[in-house]
């Protein structure tokens, strides 16, 4: 697939549409991902709006959301006309995307319920989103209160111990959960030191000679 997309003018060939749509289905089922191919498909939808397929488009957007913190879903949305974005299910997806982007995870899980059927139709969606949330929490906290985890992960309190057990590197520390250390939750001050290069002072030195 990769080869079809990257070789030359074929990138813009509308004949590819059915293949690209099938490839989206393949990505969904096999839990793989191909940004270039999906962008190519959305470009063709943009050129031939009458050939747009709502189901495929929603799958592409959800796959994009699973790539957070990479802004793939945003890249896709720039190619989807506003009037399409206002229709369902896209306005729901847009809303969910905005919550995830803004780290409003409690709201996200509240909105998840009513849309669960669509969201769960993409295998691995919930896990993908949870791993993104874990990434955000893990870069902010060294030790996080377990009720915060409960809230941002959309878990019932009974589910928390099982969740903790499923996360490598999480250790219970009283009321707190200790997160694995990384350069984001252990930031060091970047104090810039000015260094002056010889090149910079050459004009001043030259003054002495003249």
């Amino acid at each position: 697939m990769e080869q079809i997309i990257t070789c030359g003018a074929d990138r813009y060939n509308p004949e590819l549409l059915p293949k690209l749509e099938a490839h989206v289905e393949e990505q969904v089922q096999s839990q793989t991902y191909n940004l270039e191919a999906n962008l190519c498909l959305l470009r063709l939808y943009q050129f031939y709006p009458e050939r747009g397929n709502a189901r495929v488009l929603s799958q592409v957007l959800l796959k994009g959301l699973m790539q957070l913190p990479n802004p793939d879903c945003d890249l896709y949305l720039h190619l989807v006309p506003e009037r399409v974005q206002q229709e369902e299910p896209f306005s729901t997806i847009l809303n969910l995307a905005s919550m995830l982007n803004g780290a409003r995870f409690r709201e996200f899980w509240q909105a998840y319920g009513p849309a669960a059927e669509m969201l769960d139709s993409v295998p691995g969606f919930k896990e993908g989103v949870r791993s993104y949330i874990m990434h955000v929490v893990g870069s902010t906290y060294q030790n996080v209160p377990s009720n915060v985890i409960e809230e941002v992960m959309g878990l019932a309190s009974a589910e928390v111990p099982a969740f903790i057990a499923s996360q490598p590197g999480l250790t219970v520390n009283g009321d707190l959960l200790q997160l694995p250390a990384n350069e984001d939750n252990h930031p060091v001050a970047k104090n810039s030191v000015e260094s002056i290069s010889f090149h910079q002072i050459v004009p001043c030195l030259a003054l002495g000679l003249s």
Partner: peptide, 18 residues
Amino acid sequence: IDFYINGEMIHVIDNKIQ
């Protein structure tokens, strides 16, 4: 600036812009 949270406490690291 950068920061991290440890439980209830926010720790701030100032990236001094000189």
